[in-house]
Design a protein around this nucleic acid. Structure first.
Lengths: 336, 336
DNA sequence: CTGTTAGCGCGTTCAA
DNA sequence: TTGAACGCGCTAACAG
């Protein structure tokens, strides 16, 4: 492999000139530039990234911390991050935490060990003071979840607004008995969706029935969605609509309804969230709030890049567009 | 951050001694070793990976080439690779090829550019001579798919054996009209499963009806599974069982059957492959051949590591265990 | 506009 | 068993 010195010699210039040209910093005369480029071409020169990394003291690796890459929601985000990272010349250090705070900290220590230049965190629970300490020392971006009390750059959708739209849609359909399947986790998205659900009902003068609000497992499992939906469907009066904070939970709810002999949407409306689970693999296709997961990942990577480059005027937060997608699992209630 | 020189000074030795100790090569006297370790502890020293990489001329990155990380099958493999890579001190350069050979080559060029030390390829089509050239020059492992003509280390299940078991299971149930939904792709797994299907029928003296063999899209899409299953179910005599080479296709087949007014497994048996798609999210739960995806990924990473370390006696191929999982989508045919 | 030169931190000869 | 010294290939002062 040709080295920069080889190129310099071939072009009859010094290594500094070659380096300057490659890092397009200061000006180099067109003639010498041409000679250098010719030499690069001739020798099939590629800069040695390892040497550059050592010199610039950067690893060109970004740390990706997610509960579980296998979850389709995170897989799509990862895909977006990965594509941008590859394009920008970065590799990824992927750490699955299984939603364990201890493992999250361990993973973040990769920054301290100089194994990565910056990190993208998905799904951190609210209230981690130690995260702020890391963020002061290293470039960090939070994707999807974040702590509103803590000023760490993040990208997400507007969960409050999105939920408002979904619940208002249900109200407009004529529903008055609207239940919600939330989750036990401490995500900001969970909190905001809950708040929006309550506020929207109140705004429409619908009393909030605490029996209609129920929490599924932290990881939005199909199983817990199913069992919690069964509980809800046994409440009297029975809810005519169930708003679920994930598609997996919605799938569980639909299955629960079916097992109880109820049909969706004739007897009960079910709405999901995310639009990444297999929403159109079975009838009824699920009405859901779509999140642009891939783009969420892309923007997170770009935002982290700006931060690593210490660009000025960097946005502290990016809000991506969501979209309510009406499919088959929602309809007006039978008796208004 | 403390450097090796700091440690050396603190311990009253030379950097060479520290280096030797850290790379546990030659012998260092116990007393000096103790002093050095104490110094390392005291200064909270961590070796600088960038310098080490330059010196050893390695990037500590492994290239992961897959059609699409978002596909649950690959996501699980990726998860296995990622965990092992992190443990061994490697990062990942993730390249999605969308099954495009050109993009596959581009991705492999990352090796030539020294952006990665080795590569794990998933899902290469058969008959890429150029791949062998790369493999002679760089450490490469193929996961799931490979070319039997080409001697590149690989890890996979025994697709022939697995299919044989699945088809024999159907025969044992009493099925004689057994159809297959395969794929247009040129994967070795596809080829072997087809061969095993044919051989098993023949061995049982069941004539092979070419109308019963149909190819879905390259990416095993739900949609193509559904439409191809509809074609099959309109053949006369109608197949009593459909063996699908992926769960997504099986889901499509079940949906197709339902839309045609047939119930599974009463009217038609459906068997899938992989056990990663949501096989137990809807009834009937799918009978399928499970692949140990996560382990496939882990072993690929270990195998690549052996290769990068140039370990002798490295296995050229690893065959992992599969398992036929009987659930609800299979039963004996109504009329034998 | 260009060249000289000094490291970045480590691993590894070679000599003692 | 240990130390001195060199160089991996590049970037960034500084000097001209």
């Amino acid at each position: 492999m040709a080295t920069m010195a080889d190129v310099a010699k071939e072009a009859g210039v010094s290594v500094a000139t070659v380096s300057r040209l490659l890092n397009n910093q200061e000006t180099v005369s067109p003639e010498t530039a041409a000679r250098v480029f010719a030499a690069i071409e001739k020798l099939d020169y590629e800069p040695n990234i390892l040497a550059r990394n050592l010199r610039k003291n950067e690893s060109r690796v970004i740390l990706i911390i997610s509960p579980n890459v296998t979850n389709p929601y995170y897989a799509h985000i990862l895909s977006g991050i990965g594509d941008v990272a590859t394009k920008l010349g970065y590799s990824a250090l992927i750490c699955n935490t299984e939603d364990d705070e201890e493992r999250e900290r361990e993973a973040l220590d990769m920054l301290r060990k100089h194994r990565a230049d910056g990190a993208i965190l998905m799904a951190s629970n609210i209230g981690c003071k130690w995260l702020l300490d890391y963020s002061r020392e290293f470039p960090i971006v939070q994707c999807s979840e974040y702590d509103p009390q803590v000023d760490i750059p993040h990208v997400s959708i507007d969960n409050y607004q999105a939920t408002q739209e979904a619940v208002q849609y249900l109200v407009n359909l004529g529903h008055r008995y609207i239940a919600m399947i939330s989750s036990e986790n401490q995500y900001i998205s969970t909190k905001l969706r809950m708040q929006a659900y309550r506020d929207t009902l109140e705004k429409n003068n619908i009393a909030i029935d605490n029996e209609f609000i129920i929490c599924a497992s932290r990881d939005y499992s199909f199983k817990s969605g199913k069992s919690k939906a069964k509980e809800l469907l046994n409440v009297s009066p029975r809810p005519t609509a169930i708003f679920c904070i994930s598609d997996t939970l919605a799938l569980g709810a639909i299955t629960a309804a079916r097992e109880l002999g109820l049909s969706v949407p004739q007897d009960v409306t079910v709405v999901g969230f995310d639009d990444v689970e297999h929403t159109t693999m079975f009838h009824p296709y699920i009405t859901t709030v779509a999140q642009p997961c891939y783009e969420l990942g892309q923007q997170s990577a770009y935002l982290l890049y700006s931060q690593m480059r210490q660009e000025p005027n960097m946005p502290r937060q990016l809000v991506m567009d969501h979209k309510l997608i009406v499919r088959e699992s929602s309809a007006s209630p039978k008796i208004v």
